[in-house]
Each structure stands twice: as structure tokens, then as C-alpha cells.
Amino acid sequence: MPAGTLYRGREGMWSWVAHRVTGVLIFFFLFVHVLDTALVRVSPEAYDDVVSTYKTPIVALLEYGLVAAILFHALNGLRVIAVDFWSKGPRYQKQMLWTVVGIWVVLMVGALYPVLGHAVRELFGS
């Protein structure tokens, strides 16, 4: 690590990096998502055409990644809020991060079938 850096590594820094990267990703997604939804003002066909491309296996995988980013950002955001407002927050920031990661893993396993199920059926037949 270079001398005099503010970056300290470990749970604190890497959770911040992940929070920042996911936040920026979600923002760019949201921009595109408002544009695609605006197609309902063009015509039902224009909207359904675009949404039908979202039902392909590759986009399903991207969607799973998006869900991963949002769930991490949301859970870790609550952790950041706890660190800032709960008097014992800073002391338990590490434990809270591993709690966040644990809940995140459980939710991601739970999202496997709903988000990727249709893609698997399409790829390998039902």
C-alpha cells in the first residue's frame, strides 16, 4: 500500500468500493429503464418489442446481476445508516457487513429460480 493513502483495505474499504460501484451501476440502469418504459407512450407494440428482448436468457443473466447489485446496495446502505446513527454501529461494522453478505447470499439463492428459471427452461427445454 502506498504511504499516506486514505485507503485502509479490509471490510470497511471494500464494502465502500462495492457500495459505490453498485450505486453507479444502478443509476445508469435506471436511466435506461425510464427510457424503455417511456415507450408505453409510443405504442403498445414498441413497448412489447423491447420488453420481449428482456425475456431472453442473456438479459435474464444481466437481470440477475442487477438484482445482485441492488440487493447489496440496499442491505449495505442500511448498514451504513446503522454505522452513522446507532451508537454502537461503528464497533459492529464488520459483523454487520458479514450479516449483510449472509442475507444477500440467501436472497440471491432465492432469486435464482424466479429470475433465471424461464431462461433455463428456454435453453434446456421445459
Binding site: 403498445p44 420488453v51 425475456k55 435474464a60 438484482v67 441492488i70 424466479p114 429470475v115 424461464h118
Partner: peptide, 21 residues
């Protein structure tokens, strides 16, 4: 956001049901 994801991606067949209707 979590409610939105549940409705759009999980309940009632996930993204397959989404369309103009």
C-alpha cells in the same frame, strides 16, 4: 425498490408476464 423487484421479477411468473397490458 424491493417491492418493485418482487412484483416485476418474482411474483406471477416473473418478467415473462411484463408487457403493455
Amino acid at each position: 425498490v424491493i417491492g418493485h423487484l418482487l412484483i416485476q421479477l418474482v411474483l406471477d411468473g416473473g418478467v415473462s408476464k411484463v408487457g403493455f397490458a
